[in-house]
Design a protein around this nucleic acid. Structure first.
Length: 433
RNA sequence: GGAGAGAUGGCUGAGUGGUUUAAAGCGCACGCCUGGAGAGCGUGAGUGGGCUAAUACCCCACCGGGAGUUCGAAUCUCCCUCUCUCCGCCA
């Protein structure tokens, strides 16, 4: 959520920043300002009436105490009509306030000034490349073929269980998946200073609203119903990312400044409806309804936000470096930036069997956009309550990392070499047919 | 799922219709005192919103959430959520 005071005081700036996204949100600014003005006018009126009512009620109490019942009754008669006017104005003010809130919940964050202008992913500048594409003296196979030959994934039976877009890891595939999760968690907790969390995989809608997934993108997520009772539908949702529960851990709290920065990492499965997304239903691990991910979350002072953003990016990159994978880092342009983010890096890993780069990590500073929505604050040294910056980054997403790994480390005989970083977890150097 | 109890400020806890601007204690911050600390004494302190140059006054709201009764609700009524105890079921 944007700061209403900023919209009030610098509407031109807000319009310009929103316009840079190219989605037309700047057109809503005038509507917000109108509702904000109405709201304040109505509040002024109704609060004056309430002040009057409070005064008279107190006088009536005093009269009753002095047993001047007739006088008290007279004052009651006078005041009776006040209540109706207050109720009507209160309702009106409440409606305007709710309309303003709903509108603001649907407005995206302002891109940071350092974010390059652009329309789509094609305009994202590459800021760094690590390693290079591995040369092959044979035609690299797709992960689908490798996984089937090595018995790592049973695509057909997964479909039997849950339909298309679900994965059944088997044997060494399941063990490799588990090894990757544990490797990433160990790296971030032991070497990068994160506190591990294991959150609920089902959360209430307030958590999705808190991070910006609701209300605008409510069609993207799985809503859960308890048993056969349709009244319970929508009380809980399957999390689309660990960001949803973990970023909300301290919602509605006022933290002490000394508690910051808070650094969490968490493994969770991620559930996504992927309604309308390209590539759903194609075989393989690239786009699925459920995948594993190790997520990084930081809650930091605003002045530390962007230094921490760079650190988090380095932490995510370290995962791929230790796995020996070639990747590049891109900075998302204004047109490609996510709803809640002010600045985002994507990490794309090279998958030789696909002949393309796959997005395995997205590292964002959402600034105070989410902390405003979830009413998360910290008390600064000077005593005022401020909204911290909230950052999230994948460290990293598993299914695509799995793809890049097997496709990169495949051998001519169809076996896959296990990188040294994972060998302690798997106790083998190679998976063979 | 059944039965019962409960939800008040950082914590404990009083408060069943009107000077309640929510008692008191603990804890906290500052000051006095002290060589220093403690004790003692004094002062102060919540959140959001409105009005503002103001983090100064003043005003409104907030006693789990919502609705209602009333001139007036922490207090009365209804609904919901959550917590605790016991029973049932269950990994």
């Amino acid at each position: 959520m944007l700061d209403i005071k900023l919209i009030r005081e610098r509407p031109e700036f807000v319009r310009e920043r929103l316009a840079s996204r190219g989605a037309g949100d700047e057109a809503r600014v005038d509507e917000v300002l109108k509702l904000d003005e109405d709201r304040r006018r109505l509040l002024g009126e109704v609060e004056a009436l309430k002040a009057q009512r409070n005064r008279v009620s107190k006088e009536i109490g005093a009269l009753m105490g002095q047993k001047k019942l007739a006088e008290a009754e007279a004052r009651k008669q006078e005041t009776r009509a006040l209540g109706d006017r207050i109720a009507a104005l209160d309702r009106q003010a409440g409606e305007v306030d709710e309309a303003r809130r709903q509108l603001m919940l649907r407005m995206p964050n302002l891109p940071h000034e350092s974010v390059p202008r652009g329309r789509s992913a094609e305009d994202n500048p590459v800021v760094r490349v690590h390693g290079e594409k591995r040369p092959f003296d044979f035609k690299p196979r797709s992960h689908v073929e490798l996984c089937e030959k090595l018995g790592l994934v049973d695509f057909e039976r997964a479909t039997k269980l849950s339909g298309s877009g679900f994965v059944l890891y088997t044997g060494w595939g399941a063990r490799l998946e588990r090894a990757l999760i544990q490797f990433m968690l160990d790296l971030h907790t032991r070497e990068h200073g994160y506190t591990e969390a294991s959150p609920p995989f089902l959360v209430g809608p307030q958590c999705l609203e808190g991070v910006g997934q609701f209300p605008k993108f409510a069609d993207q997520y799985y809503a859960v119903q308890e048993g056969l009772d349709p009244a319970t539908l929508g009380r809980l949702y399957l999390i689309p990312t660990a960001e949803t529960p973990v970023a909300n851990i301290h919602r509605e709290e006022i933290l002490a400044e000394a508690q910051l920065p808070l650094n969490y990492c968490a493994y969770t499965p991620c559930f996504r409806g992927e309604a309308g997304a390209a590539g759903v239903g194609t075989r393989g691990l690239i786009r699925v309804h459920q995948f594993d991910k190790v997520e990084l979350i930081k809650i930091v002072r605003p002045e530390d936000g962007y230094a921490e953003h760079e650190k988090m990016l380095a932490h995510a990159e370290r995962v791929l470096q230790l796995l020996g994978l070639h990747y590049r880092v891109v900075l998302l342009c204004t047109g490609d930036l996510g709803f809640a983010s002010a600045r985002t890096y994507d990490i794309e890993v090279w998958a030789p069997g696909q002949g393309s780069y796959l997005e395995v990590s997205s590292v964002s500073n959402c600034e105070d956009f989410q902390s405003r929505r979830m009413n998360l604050r910290y008390k600064s040294a000077s005593g005022d309550n401020r909204h911290p910056h909230v950052l999230n980054g994948s460290g990293t997403a598993l299914a695509r990392c799995f793809v890049a790994l097997v496709e990169t480390l495949q051998q001519a005989d169809g076996s896959v070499i296990i990188p040294p970083a994972l060998q302690p977890y798997l106790q083998v150097e190679r998976i063979s047919p």
